[in-house]
Computed example of a mutant assay.
Amino acid sequence: MNTYKQTPVTFLTISAEQAGQRIDNFLHTHLKGVPRSHIYRILRTGEVRINKGRIKPTYRLMVGDVLRLPPLQCQDHNPNVPSANRLKALANAILYEDAHLLIINKPAGMAVHGGTGINGGVIEALRALYPNAPYLELVHRLDRDTSGCLMIAKKRSMLRRLHDLLRNGGIHKHYLALVQGRWNPHIRRVEAPLRKNLLQSGERIVRVSAEGKSALTQFSIEQQFTTTTLLRVQPFTGRTHQIRVHAAHQGHPIAGDSKYGDETFNQQMRHDKLKRLWLHAEKLDIDLPEINYHLSTSAPLPDALQQTLLCQKKTLNY
């Protein structure tokens, strides 16, 4: 059973390391155990104040701001702490680490953060693995069923720099994807705007729409098989489900994609030992010349995806 503690009115002075964040994102990170819905309620009602004034959830913190937090009930127990097995798996999945950045090979099936019905995500696990780390924040996200390179900033200053790079195309992300059918080699770039939609069931889905946000993905053929194609993919924008939707939009959904894929094809792929989405964030290239920071990291292809490729290669011999 979860227990709760009552916090008093708190005043915080924003440091240079904390400046630049949206107030809602800062509170979500700072107020562990407080539901996101409650955070937005205390923002709407003006219980959270900056320099004695009301602010909107989109307000960005400035150095020297005095933040007032009202009395709050916080959970003593965090229901999203991952299991010991997940902690061990994540500890073994670290690809790169320095004083600024942590890169892991995120396992498929693990969400980047915990939530309703999710018993702990990557960020909760890393905070459990690094209990004395003053700062750990996701730089970007990967879908729950996607494996591969995931960046976690260890300093707020690095998070800001990497977000700037992501917005300006300064981080090169490379994926491998196995798709249905034989991809047309002349299709190298897919530029189709994407819009998030919410179904009546509450499920989130992304569709190509003229009213959506711009999205650009580059595809190149790595290897073609009898009924599938292995693609190397580079997204130039970071829209939700971008690679999956752009591939399906071309008539070549990713193998194992239960949301945007073909169920008959997915059933056939299950005979080839595929039990997950065949999408892997293989490589990251980061270039920050102003601090002489250059990094290229790769995540090895998981055994489960290699087994599926072996099955596809066997079909070429018949």
Rank of each mutant, 00 (worst) to 15 (best):
I23Q: 02
G64H: 10
A248N: 01
Q180S: 09
T240R: 13
R22P: 00
L279T: 01
R127L: 12
R41A: 13
L165E: 13
S298M: 09
R36K: 15
F236S: 05
Y175H: 11
R144P: 01
K213Q: 12
E203V: 14
S258I: 13
P185W: 01
A210D: 12
M110F: 04
I55F: 05
V81H: 07
D65Y: 06
E263N: 11
V66Q: 15
I221G: 02
W183E: 01
H294S: 13
E282V: 01
I123M: 10
Q180W: 00
L150R: 07
L43W: 03
I123G: 06
G117A: 13
R195W: 01
D287L: 09
D287A: 14
I221D: 00
R244H: 02
R276W: 01
K5Y: 11
Q21S: 13
P253C: 08
R86G: 00
P82M: 03
G115R: 11
I55T: 11
D164T: 11
L309S: 02
A304W: 04
D76R: 15
P35L: 11
K313Q: 15
G202F: 09
A247C: 15
K5P: 00
H241I: 04
I23M: 04
P82T: 08
P131G: 06
R232S: 13
R49T: 05
T29P: 00
P253Q: 08
R232T: 12
L216S: 10
L67D: 03
S258W: 06
K5T: 11
N2T: 13
T315N: 09
K173Y: 05
R127A: 07
I221T: 04
R195I: 05
V233C: 08
T297G: 03
L230F: 03
T264F: 07
R156L: 03
G120K: 04
H252M: 06
V206A: 02
G117K: 11
D145E: 15
H113W: 06
Q200P: 12
M1N: 09
H252V: 02
H28D: 03
P300Y: 10
W183R: 07
A89P: 01
Y59L: 12
D303E: 14
T237V: 07
E282M: 10
R144H: 06
P107T: 09
K106Q: 07
E17G: 12
Q6H: 12
T228V: 00
E290T: 14
K52T: 10
H28Q: 14
L166M: 15
G64Y: 09
F236D: 03
V9H: 12
N292A: 14
I187L: 05
L95Q: 01
V139T: 03
